[in-house]
Design a binder for these strands. Structure first.
Lengths: 204, 204
DNA sequence: TTTTTATATGCAAAAGCTTGCATAAATGAT
DNA sequence: ATCATTTATGCAAGCTTTTGCATATAAAAA
């Protein structure tokens, strides 16, 4: 068992904190987005700004590349759809193979990943000269989270007011949304704690 | 301004939710880890299991590659250190240029990044056949977070019992730690909510 | 009528990260 | 003596992601 020292204090790392490597979940995120409705790359990129994309962002290049790969692997099928007033689009849908692969993936163990938030790294660099900048950044973050929470709450009230009565899959989506809401609420609270602390430093 | 539909509900995306691209923060995370003490790649990889690494993980290969790049850019210097009973190590330290670059980086705007948690994607795939597996995964996640929280709390009590009396940089580290603690507490609460909901589905 | 905006898709190169392997010194265990 | 483990560093191939174009249709605005 591996041990490390944190300032005279010895800590034993639990084995599950180490890398047990999973492929990417981008492909699964895309397939998941296609469970109920077929979509084009462009629509996916947009829907990633809402719904699943509340938790999983991807650029359009990433999406197009992944769609190409997934359809080469027969996990997705594609068809061109003519539109009036717009260029044609290529709509992707899950194949039976894709649905099976997705269901199997659910059973594979997933790793816990840490936040990787730039702001936390920045806080390690806090000093008298940048306190006011940190306050500004935290305020921006706070505003950002507020907006996100507002959106989440609207979705919740509109579509998940009575979660117990929803079909099972929707209850899962609800739990993910709830995770987003709880996380946002917590982040907001932390911002306020941190801002209070920073304000007291700044006034010294 | 870009708009998208979420189930009949129109939402206007705020501009800051889009990609404004930052380089990587791995290099900054490494430089930050070297602010107070010089370290070898091996020591960095280990310290990434504690301290900053509570929030930012990196493999040893990633670290060695980054150290090489950073010293080529004159942001770090290196020296070989002989050890008794162990192979020699190469110890890296921040150069003046590195310290300046780090201080400047703090002022660059950082993006908010979403969770990218596999578990949330899996929840979108919830159905009658995998409810019990989801419960198992959530219980595992809960256990994992508990352990992490326990570690955080130990560190907090041992080194940050009276944050106001700490030097400024340490107060920043404390705020990051507090973020980890608050986030863990929230995640734990959400796990319990979700487990309760899943249990009620499973018993139907 | 030209320009801008939204829709729609993609390539190619570069950068970054993961995976698998390889090496080596020193200690301790068999 | 040999083997396993810990400490310590790194290469090379492959995969993923980002960055920077590039293209094209159609509507709307200037």
């Amino acid at each position: 068992m591996q041990a490390f020292a944190y300032k005279n204090e010895w800590v034993y790392a639990s084995s599950d904190s180490l890398n047990d490597n999973e492929p990417m979940a981008l492909s699964q995120a895309i397939m998941t987005a296609l469970i109920e409705d077929d979509m084009s790359g462009y629509e996916l990129a947009q829907s990633f700004d809402s719904s699943l994309g509340l938790f999983w962002r991807a650029s359009h290049q990433q999406i197009y590349q992944e769609l190409k790969k997934l359809s080469e692997q027969q996990l997705l099928n594609k068809r061109e759809v003519s539109q009036s007033g717009k260029p044609n689009k290529i709509v992707y849908g899950l194949t039976l193979l894709g649905r099976e692969a997705l269901q199997e993936w659910v059973y594979k163990e997933s790793k816990v990943q840490e936040a990787k938030d730039d702001l936390l790294v920045k806080l390690y660099n806090l000093d008298a000269s940048n306190v006011s900048h940190m306050i500004t950044e935290l305020e921006g973050r706070r505003e950002n989270i507020m907006q996100r929470l507002y959106l989440y709450e609207r979705i919740r009230r509109r579509h998940y007011a009575d979660p117990d009565s929803l079909p099972i899959r929707r209850q899962g989506v609800y739990l993910a949304l709830l995770g987003g809401i709880r996380n946002g609420e917590q982040y907001l609270g932390w911002c306020d704690e941190a801002l209070k602390q920073l304000a007291s430093i700044d006034s010294d």
